[in-house]
C-alpha cells in the first residue's frame, strides 16, 4: 500500500506506461517538471488527480502514477470541476492544450476561471494541432501554413493570458517547456487557492518546430524574455540594463536602456502581481518588439468556488421525513 506518509520522489510519480510522444517533444520536459514538483507539495499521493481533455498534451495522465482521467475534447475543465465539487480535498491538475482549452473547450475554460475552482491548469501552447496532424490552432499566428490553411491562415490568434484576465482569473503565469523555472511556477500555481492558469510555451517538434525560437533561442533569450518577480523591477537583458517603463502620457509600456537618456533604475516599473492592468500589459507583450513576460504575472487570490459552495451548507442535518413532509399534507383516517 502506498502510505500517505512515505517520502516520495519524482520517479514515484511515473506510471508503468510507455510514453508515446514524439521524440524531442516539449511534453517530455513538462512531464519531468511536474514529476519533480509533486513530491515537494506535501500532498498525499492518493489525493492527486490529473484530468485532461483530448490532444497530445492530454495523454499526460496516463504517464502519471496518480489518479487520472483522460476525458473528452475540451471538457476537461467541467470534469475537473465536478471532481472538486464532489470532493474539495482532492488536488486537481488539469492538463490541456491550445486547441483543447481555447477552441473546442473555450467556453468551459472561461467559466472555470470565472468560478475560481481551486485547481491548476497547465495549458500546453504549441500553436498547432498535433494529434490531428498539423492544422492551425486558435493561437497560430496569422499566415501559418498548414493542411487546412495551405495559403496561410487568415485568422487572428487568441491570447490565452488576455482571455484568462477577461474571464476573471486570479492567477496567470507563463513559462517554457524546457525552462528550469517551470517547477517554481508550478509550485506557485499550487500554492494559490483558486484556478491557477499556467500557459506553457511548448515546442511541437514535428508540426511547428521552432515556433518560439525568437523567444527561446539561447543566443538571444536574455533580450527576448523578462522574468517577472513580485516587488522587483522589471528589468531584463544579458547585462540587466534593459527595463520596462510606462510611456509618458499613455497606458503602454516601452523598453528603455538604463543609463541611456538619463534613465535610472528608479524609472523602471516594479512588478506588482496584484495589479490587473499591469498584468494585461505584460501579457500583451510579444517578441521581437518586446520581451515575452514569464513567471507569475498575476496573482490576486479570492474565495474559491467550492469554499463558497460548502459554506452554504447549514449545520443542521435533517431527516428524510422532513423532506417528504415538505408542503401541505393531510391525514386520511
Amino acid at each position: 500500500m502506498t502510505g500517505s506518509t512515505v517520502e516520495l520522489k519524482a520517479k514515484d510519480f511515473a506510471s508503468d506506461q510507455e510514453v508515446r510522444w514524439c521524440p524531442g517533444c516539449g511534453d517530455y520536459a513538462i512531464l519531468k517538471a511536474v514529476q519533480r514538483t509533486l513530491p515537494g507539495l506535501g500532498v498525499p499521493k492518493e489525493n492527486f488527480v490529473f484530468v485532461s481533455g483530448i490532444g497530445c498534451s492530454s495523454r499526460f495522465p496516463y504517464y502519471m502514477s496518480t489518479y487520472g482521467f483522460h476525458t473528452i475534447h475540451g471538457r476537461g475543465p467541467a470534469i475537473a470541476t465536478g471532481v472538486k465539487v464532489a470532493n474539495p480535498e482532492l488536488d486537481v491538475w488539469l492538463i490541456t492544450g491550445d486547441g483543447d482549452a481555447l477552441s473546442i473547450g473555450g467556453n468551459h475554460l472561461i467559466h472555470l476561471l470565472r468560478r475560481n475552482v481551486n485547481l491548476q491548469v497547465l495549458l500546453f501552447n504549441n500553436e498547432i494541432y498535433g494529434l490531428t496532424k498539423g492544422q492551425y490552432s486558435p493561437t497560430s499566428k496569422r499566415g501559418t501554413r498548414s493542411p487546412t490553411s495551405p495559403r496561410g491562415s487568415v485568422e487572428h490568434p487568441l491570447s490565452a493570458g488576455w482571455l484568462a484576465m477577461g474571464a476573471g482569473a486570479h492567477f496567470v503565469a507563463r513559462s517554457i517547456d524546457t525552462a528550469k523555472e517551470l517547477t517554481t511556477v508550478l509550485t506557485r500555481a499550487h500554492e494559490h487557492k483558486g484556478t491557477s492558469l499556467v500557459e506553457i510555451l511548448q515546442n511541437c517538434i514535428v508540426f511547428n518546430d521552432g515556433v518560439f525560437e525568437a523567444v527561446t533561442d539561447r543566443a538571444t533569450a536574455a533580450d527576448r524574455q523578462i522574468h517577472v518577480e513580485h516587488g522587483k523591477p522589471l528589468v531584463f537583458g544579458k547585462e540587466k540594463n534593459l527595463g520596462l517603463k510606462l510611456k509618458a502620457g499613455s497606458l503602454t509600456v516601452e523598453v528603455v536602456t538604463i543609463g541611456g537618456n538619463g534613465i535610472t533604475t528608479d524609472d523602471i516599473m516594479v512588478h506588482n502581481e496584484k495589479d490587473k492592468v499591469l498584468a494585461a500589459l505584460l501579457l500583451g507583450m510579444e517578441a521581437p518588439e518586446f520581451p515575452v513576460a514569464l513567471g507569475v504575472i498575476y496573482c490576486d487570490p479570492a474565495p474559491t468556488y467550492e469554499q463558497m459552495l460548502y459554506e452554504q451548507v447549514r449545520e443542521e442535518s435533517p431527516t428524510l421525513d422532513s423532506l417528504l413532509n415538505r408542503g401541505q399534507t393531510w391525514e386520511v383516517v
Binding site: 467541467a78 465536478g82 471532481v83
Partner: peptide, 17 residues
C-alpha cells in the same frame, strides 16, 4: 453549468470522485 455539455461532464467528474 455554463452549458449542457459541461453539466453532463460535471456529473461525470463528481461520480469519478
Amino acid at each position: 453549468a455554463e452549458d449542457e455539455i459541461a453539466a453532463a461532464c460535471v456529473a461525470i467528474g463528481a461520480s469519478f470522485a
